[in-house]
Amino acid sequence: MTKGILIVGYGTRTGNLTDILESQAARLRARGRKNIYVSYFRISEPTIPDAIAKMAADGIDDVLAIPYYIAEGRMTLELIPEKLGIGHTSHGVADIGGRKVKVTVAPAFGRTRMLTNILTDRIAQAGGSKDTGILVIGHGSRDMHDSNREIVELNARRLGDMGYRHVAYGFNEFCGPEISDALASLAKETDEVIVTPLFIANGVHLGEEIAEKLGISNYSKGGKVDIGGKMICVKYMAPVEDDVRLLESIDAKVADFYGE
């Protein structure tokens, strides 16, 4: 069988997700990995069905799909497999234009400590200390099976276990606590807060919606914010993007797929 790799992202109208996925795909190719493709669930192109159709047309009949997602949920467990033609399962055989293609869907990044390490790098970049306020933010989900909340809570707890004294977490929507409430809680304890997004890429959510909830300018890196009459400094850090540790995670899955 001829194997191929399909990196799957959500899609974006205004953010840098496509640059991130193309960057990681280029790095894999530079390492000698062959048959590397990218695709998107919605908005961006190529779509998942178009990408796997191209793979089948190129003679690939054994596909490892790697979701470039923070956490497992309905998107990775059901919706992406559906678009790959294998129903609600992580392993199956799809009929792609009359060709039988074996498809395996890898897990999202999830509970790995590399996400925590990326957050600590962001804290270091911002000049933070164990006494600095740290706000870990996630998107949130109304899906009961989505582990986004669990992963955000887990990483906040890990930071606390490392000795950071003022750690909180909040969500953009669907889950509590809300970002504005979490920030207000930290403002009672410290006058500087580093905001570390557990998001894949920049876009409207981070650049506009969450910026407004933090009280800073759109698409900015932070600023002085009045929280209940107290001025605090908010430092707004980048999401995980194309961090090399995420590449290593992907490459490890590729190596396992190839039996290395």
Rank of each mutant, 00 (worst) to 15 (best):
residue 3 K to I: 03
residue 8 V to W: 13
residue 19 D to Y: 10
residue 22 E to C: 04
residue 25 A to E: 14
residue 28 L to C: 07
residue 31 R to G: 12
residue 37 Y to C: 02
residue 39 S to T: 00
residue 49 P to I: 12
residue 49 P to G: 04
residue 50 D to G: 02
residue 60 I to H: 01
residue 63 V to G: 00
residue 75 M to T: 15
residue 85 G to D: 13
residue 88 H to V: 05
residue 93 V to A: 08
residue 93 V to N: 05
residue 94 A to W: 00
residue 97 G to Y: 15
residue 99 R to G: 01
residue 102 K to Q: 07
residue 102 K to W: 02
residue 105 V to H: 07
residue 106 A to C: 10
residue 107 P to G: 11
residue 107 P to L: 08
residue 115 L to K: 02
residue 125 Q to W: 03
residue 132 T to D: 08
residue 135 L to E: 00
residue 141 S to E: 10
residue 144 M to L: 12
residue 155 N to L: 08
residue 163 G to H: 10
residue 166 H to E: 06
residue 166 H to I: 01
residue 177 P to S: 07
residue 186 L to Q: 06
residue 189 E to H: 09
residue 192 E to K: 07
residue 196 T to F: 09
residue 200 I to C: 04
residue 200 I to P: 02
residue 203 G to R: 08
residue 207 G to Q: 13
residue 208 E to G: 02
residue 209 E to G: 01
residue 211 A to W: 11
residue 215 G to Y: 14
residue 215 G to H: 14
residue 216 I to D: 03
residue 220 S to T: 09
residue 229 G to K: 11
residue 231 M to W: 07
residue 233 C to G: 07
residue 233 C to H: 12
residue 235 K to V: 12
residue 236 Y to V: 04
residue 237 M to Q: 14
residue 241 E to W: 10
residue 245 R to C: 06
residue 247 L to N: 07
residue 252 A to I: 04
residue 256 D to R: 10
residue 258 Y to I: 03
residue 259 G to F: 09
residue 259 G to Y: 06
